[in-house]
């Protein structure tokens, strides 16, 4: 039985790495007593999958993880419910119970938005993700400075970005990943909404797009911008 958990990586925990996010959520599942199915082998791990990882510094309003529940464990929960004299078992009751338990033990900054059953189908959720909507706040730059540079970016056929990794430098075309960029007129700090595509797990960071604006005469210290992912789109 596979459930999908829609959760928030909030402002206070934005500086956690993806690895730390997964560690905290796994430990919270353990504290909440979820009957999570385990992998086999010498050191069994919880069957939990995370998607579209966020980098350090970025918060996420609607993030997703899948948890495979152990049928025996669920059966135990149902029996426990029956003992308490609750009504006939329905999936929804158990899910509500699990949601509540999980909510209670999450570290401050995380929250659960929804828990729902998904098909234990073959298709990988990561490949179903088509895009992300980001909100970006930039201080010390006005919307008037931003707009022309962004317009220029959008008129380009391609905008190449060199991503420096420890061992190699990879060149990515940012333009093909950017679906839309909107500057909120007159906002302060200058606020941008950016819709970015995902292509089978490949995507780009909004910070890279902002960095590339230096080609169009606008220098932004992207280490200082506040990025929030508001939504993840999927088929």
């Amino acid at each position: 039985m596979r459930v999908r958990v829609k959760y928030t990586k909030g402002d206070k925990v934005r500086f956690l790495s993806h690895l730390d996010v997964t560690r905290n959520l796994r430990m919270a599942l353990a504290r909440a007593g979820w009957p999570v199915a385990m992998t086999g082998g010498y050191s069994p791990k919880m069957k939990v999958s995370f998607y579209a990882p966020l980098p350090v510094g970025t918060a996420g309003e609607e993030e997703y993880m899948d948890v495979v529940l152990d049928t025996k464990g669920i059966a135990r929960l149902v029996r426990a419910n029956a003992k308490c004299g609750s009504r006939k078992f329905r999936d929804i009751d158990i899910l509500a119970q699990l949601t509540k338990a999980f909510s209670r033990v999450l570290p401050e900054g995380f929250s659960v938005k929804q828990v729902y059953l998904v098909d234990d189908g073959k298709q990988n959720f990561e490949s179903q993700i088509t895009g992300s909507l980001y909100r970006i706040e930039v201080e010390e730059v006005t919307t008037e400075d931003l707009s022309p540079a962004i317009e220029q970016f959008l008129t380009q056929e391609q905008v190449l970005y060199e991503l420096e990794r420890p061992k190699q430098t990879r060149t990515t075309d940012l333009r093909q990943f950017v679906e839309s960029i909107e500057v909120v007129p007159g906002s302060s700090p200058a606020t941008i909404f950016m819709k970015i595509r995902h292509d089978n797990g490949r995507t780009v960071r909004p910070q890279w797009v902002l960095e590339s604006l230096s080609e169009f005469g606008l220098d932004i210290d992207t280490r200082e911008v506040i990025v929030d992912r508001l939504k993840v789109y999927f088929d």
């Binding site: 500086f15 730390d20 350090v56 510094g57 992207t222 200082e224």
Partner: peptide, 8 residues
């Protein structure tokens, strides 16, 4: 904090 390693 985006300027430092492991800001958390």
């Amino acid at each position: 904090l985006g300027k430092v390693e492991k800001p958390a």
